[in-house]
């Protein structure tokens, strides 16, 4: 039970609302000439945090469009996370919920924002324990150990390949593998085809490469297992070199 009087709560609420919207409230006993510092300081923290998280979108959108978007987000949205560095995720979710891409006629905006957020998330996300693995094994028939600190995502626009100015009309199915290098903590991005995205997803689900390829051969109507196997092994070896495939899971 709160011990605050309603009048005190109301004063606090009005000041907070002013910081969000910039609409000057009626407050008691204030230095009116100093009130704007709170709006400025609060708003600057929000703007800096969002612009740092979304540098591509920030540069791409015209200033007046960006400023209006950030202003409306701050005024309308109630930030839920106590950790300001996680707040940009709420900005992305706000843009999706409010269909900002539809309103701006930029059908790739959600993908672009999500791509930028993902880079931040993969870089900072909590450590995930690595599986126990051997470096020697049978590529086709042993279960493969993969770097657990990764995201495999589908985009409708190739936001991870092309500049924002080149995305119009490029609608399709695009897959991105984004992972964090264990030692350096650097984030690596790799464009993968739908076939290879399927292979990675199934390996992650606990199938051997042989089993995945058997399924993929019919699912994708390739009907040439040996050719598929050759390409897939090259792909997997490439991922081993990149240290995304770690080796072979211990039984």
């Amino acid at each position: 039970m709160s011990l605050l009087k309603e009048s005190t709560r109301e004063q606090q609420s009005k000041l907070a609302e002013y910081c969000k919207t910039g609409i000057v409230p009626e407050l008691t006993g204030i230095l009116e000439e100093n009130l704007h510092h709170y709006r400025r300081l609060v708003f600057n923290i929000g703007i800096d945090t969002i612009e740092t998280a979304y540098p591509i979108t920030y540069r791409f959108l015209p200033d007046e469009v960006w400023d209006k978007l950030v202003y409306e987000f701050y005024a309308e949205h109630k930030c839920q996370t106590p950790q300001v560095w996680r707040m940009p995720l709420e900005f992305y979710e706000y843009c999706v919920e409010k269909d900002i891409q539809g309103k701006l006629n930029l059908p790739f905006l959600n993908d672009l924002l999500y791509f930028e957020w993902l880079e931040l998330e993969v870089h900072t996300m909590d450590d995930i324990p690595y599986p126990s693995f051997d470096t020697e094994g049978d590529l086709l028939n042993n279960l493969l150990a993969i770097n657990p600190e990764h995201k495999l995502v589908k985009f409708t626009y190739p936001v991870h390949i092309l500049a924002a100015t080149e995305l119009e009309g490029k609608e399709g199915n695009y897959f991105l593998l984004m992972y964090r290098e264990k030692e350096s903590g650097k984030v690596q991005c790799m464009d993968v085809s739908i076939l290879y995205a399927y292979i990675l997803e199934q390996i992650q689900n606990g199938l051997t490469l042989h089993a995945v390829l058997t399924d993929a051969d019919s699912l994708f109507q390739i009907n040439n297992f040996e050719m598929l196997k050759e390409h897939a092994i090259n792909f997997i070896n490439d991922l081993k070199q990149r240290q995304f495939i770690l080796g072979f899971l211990n039984a």
Binding site: S2, L3, L4, K5, T8, Q11, Q12, S13, L15, A16, E17, C19, K20, Y38, L41, V42, I45, G46, T49, H77, K78, C79, Q80, T81, P82, V84, M87
Partner: peptide, 28 residues
């Protein structure tokens, strides 16, 4: 100070009214 109000984080430090009920609220 307070940095959250009406279920919204503001990520800055706002001044609390220097009042007796606020004192009791914060002590608790």
């Amino acid at each position: 100070s307070y940095a959250k109000c009406d279920n919204a984080h503001l990520y800055d430090l706002l001044p609390i009214p220097f009042r007796k009920d606020a004192v009791e609220h914060i002590i608790a």
